[in-house]
Design a protein around this nucleic acid. Structure first.
Length: 705
DNA sequence: CGAATTGAGTTTTTT
DNA sequence: ACTCAATTCG
């Protein structure tokens, strides 16, 4: 595709955003305004028209998935392969820089990346050691994470003066934590950014090098950057001053992990010649959906004014359904999806169900299963969070870097090899006394035989195991995993399912080399990018960001759930909850359903719920409020009663799901569904090679086979 | 040292 | 209600 035709596909504002390539640019892109299109086209334009090599464009996306999509979109626009790109998340880009430069900060280049649970176990360990109530580890972890996101080092935190009370303790923990990470040659997620910034602060020559290398900087989802990420962008962009950031303050939903919408104002201050372009034409939603979501978000005080509009037409009214309890809510959704599906305009993959917290998916999943509606839960329990997978990864990391104490603690006695608490204490003690890693402490105990013969022998066995595995580290990872499982007998006490997970891990490692594999795994969140299959998508609002669906269900519109009760105290957090709702609603292209339940199980108690306050900002004429005492025909349809068969033999279901029929045109197919009565009796039939057809029995001339 | 039982805490959102 | 961890018993 040439540049002309690229430009012609854009509206005037988008065009302007694409063509503005000299100097800093902020694109305020409302929901559904085609920002992804602008950013990918711009990338292509920079390559084609401005003749920038792809290695000189630094493009940041919010997720790895978004990065992959961006790459493949650009490829298909340009009709060519892209190599040597710098397209990725902040974390992966920083990782890449640090892998070649981190020596300057005194770390070694084969550092491991600690994920949240590694971080947690390390902090717990430190708390235990410092005699601080261990259950606080989560709060401590967030505090430390926020400090790092604000580029505050332990030293600075201590000297900041207000570190009395608990903060004094926190400072100690932070200090120890950072120290311990370095000892383990490990970086946590926040370090990846913080240390890159520090690298550039301390080494002007390196900053220069990268400033020169990156002639253009593109940042997507700018509203969700934290301070350290902002600093990184600012530093890199200060050279050529060619920078485009895309964002929407109304869609900022990651405040809890340090994102600051303020970065938008910071940008205006730091780049006085900043050009601002608003994208206000929405290509996604119907007018009704836009009106409803617009009315809700308008309640937020701190936001930039904008007028989203669409030429898509009014569309259907948005409805809010208030149901007696969560089961009914789920059942109602499942039933409605079935109806939508049978009408034939949409298929399952066009439909999404969104919720505030993952836990809500349970009831919904159950209802969908009962209705035999295929679904997939996006996000949820991460593959890489499963114990068996983490264990194997811990082995791999020890092979790569034996000083990784966190991983070592994890596997030293997994599977059980007779190294118990007493022995581990001893190892910890030696490690501390000698100032060496746990692994070296074990070696020390072995060589000095400073423990009972049985213990020494067990420890020696362990060292030998790791060394043996280490000797094959250059082989493909899948081979190494196989060897781990065999040498340790790991799979012996495992369920079939867990063994399956390990097999899956091996499969995902296919062809990779150890270091590269560990890198990839630590920065990835979910493996289930299997969009294949015609299935309804279930996910949280957060996960839904950036996606769109023809039909969207927003569930749990109740006080305490949306807004979440933790946000009640602060106006800022309430505004974030409102944005969350806004993001959810604006995922919908054609149909938006809002639901809530009057009674809901919270923990193990049944709670009375109030409808969400957000509903009251919606103008009456935009949204129908429906209170359902659970529709009668829903009850009839529960499998228990089967009223159809018993009550009216005349209307017995003539075409059962699964039976085969012949159609004059499409041949033999399998009945997937049967609905309606009498004259209106309809069937959905799957004809091989043709697909699912919905037919009125009256006209279709079906023949049983 | 390991298995089993009890007990506590847990449920925001994610790179 | 359910999971994970600490404690206790064998």
């Amino acid at each position: 595709m040439n540049a002309r035709s690229l430009i012609n596909q854009l509206n005037p504002q988008q065009k302007e955003a694409l063509l503005h390539t000299d100097g800093p640019l902020l694109i305020l892109a409302g929901a559904g305004s085609g920002k992804t299109r602008v950013i990918t086209y711009k990338y292509a334009y920079l390559l084609k028209e401005k003749n920038l090599p792809s290695s000189s464009i630094f493009a940041v996306t919010f997720t790895n998935k978004a990065a992959d999509e961006m790459k493949s979109r650009i490829c298909s626009i340009l009709g060519c392969e892209l190599n040597h790109t710098w397209i990725g998340t902040f974390h992966s880009q920083c990782n890449r820089i640090l892998r070649s430069e981190i020596k300057a900060l005194g770390y070694s280049t084969d550092f491991v990346i600690y994920d949240e649970s590694d971080q947690h176990s390390l902090i717990r360990h430190i708390l235990k050691e410092l005699n601080i109530y261990e259950a606080l580890y989560k709060g401590v972890a967030t505090r430390i994470s926020n400090l790092k996101a604000s580029l505050i080092s332990p030293e600075e935190f201590i000297s900041s003066g207000d570190s009395y009370g608990f903060d004094e303790k926190l400072a100690k923990v932070y200090m120890r934590y950072q120290d311990e990470l370095k000892r383990c040659n490990a970086l946590d997620f926040d370090d990846l950014i913080m240390l890159t910034v520090r690298l550039f602060q301390e080494r002007e020559d390196l900053l220069k090098k990268y400033q020169e290398r990156f002639q253009y900087i593109l940042v997507d989802e700018f509203q969700d950057t934290n301070y350290s990420q902002y600093m990184l962008v600012k530093m890199l962009a200060s050279g050529h001053r060619q920078l485009s950031v895309v964002g929407d303050d109304d869609q900022s939903i990651y405040r809890f992990r340090g994102a600051e919408v303020r970065n938008i104002t910071r940008l205006e201050k730091d780049f006085p010649d900043l050009k601002i372009i608003k994208l206000e034409q929405n290509y996604r939603c119907t007018q009704n959906i836009l009106d409803v979501s617009g009315a809700v978000i308008a309640e937020n005080k701190s936001r930039k004014q904008k007028r989203l509009w669409t030429d898509r037409g009014r569309g259907d009214k948005v409805c809010f359904y208030w149901l007696p309890n969560e089961e009914d809510e789920a059942k109602y959704i499942a039933r409605t999806i079935r109806e939508i599906y049978l009408k034939g305009k949409y298929t399952y993959r066009d439909i999404a169900i969104l919720y505030r917290i993952n836990m809500q998916s349970r009831a919904i999943e159950e209802a969908l299963r009962k209705e035999r509606i295929p679904y997939r839960v996006v996000g949820g329990i991460g593959f890489y969070e499963r114990a068996e997978v983490k264990d194997i990864l811990a082995y791999l990391r020890i092979i790569q870097n034996p000083h990784d104490n966190v991983s070592l603690r994890r596997i030293i006695n997994t599977p059980p090899r007779g190294i118990g608490a007493a022995t581990i204490n001893k190892i910890e003690h030696v490690s501390k006394k000698e100032g060496i890693s746990l692994y070296d402490a074990i070696s020390d105990i072995c060589s000095k035989k400073s423990s009972s013969p049985t213990v020494v022998e067990r420890l020696r066995d362990f060292i030998e195991l790791i060394e043996r595995l280490s000797s094959i580290r250059t082989q493909p990872v899948s081979e190494v995993i196989k060897e781990i499982v065999e040498l340790t007998g790991y799979a012996e006490s495992l369920s079939e399912e867990r063994i399956q997970n390990i097999a899956e891990l091996m499969a995902s490692a296919e062809g990779a080399e150890l270091g590269e594999f560990l890198d990839r795994v630590s920065l990835i969140t979910r493996l289930d990018d299997s969009v294949e299959g015609d299935r309804v998508s279930l996910m949280t609002f957060h996960t839904a960001k950036g996606l769109e669906f023809s039909v969207v269900f927003i569930t749990g519109l109740e006080e305490g759930l949306l807004p979440y009760f933790k946000a009640f105290e602060s106006d800022e957090e309430l505004e974030e909850e409102r944005r969350l709702f806004y993001v959810g609603m604006t995922r919908a292209k054609d149909h938006l359903y809002l639901t809530g339940a009057k009674k809901r199980r919270v923990f193990s108690k049944l709670q009375d719920q109030e409808p969400s306050r957000f509903l009251f900002s919606i103008p009456k004429n935009c949204c129908r409020w429906v209170e359902k005492a659970i529709c009668k025909h829903y009850q009839e349809a529960t499998p228990k009663e089967k009223p159809r068969k018993a009550a009216s033999p005349a209307f017995k279901v003539p075409y059962k799901t699964g039976c085969r029929v012949r159609h004059p045109k499409w041949g033999v197919g399998v009945v997937r569904d049967c609905y309606g009565e009498g004259e209106d009796l309809k069937v959905a039939v799957n004809f091989p090679g043709v697909g699912v057809k919905r037919l009125a029995v009256k006209f279709a001339h079906l023949e049983r086979v």
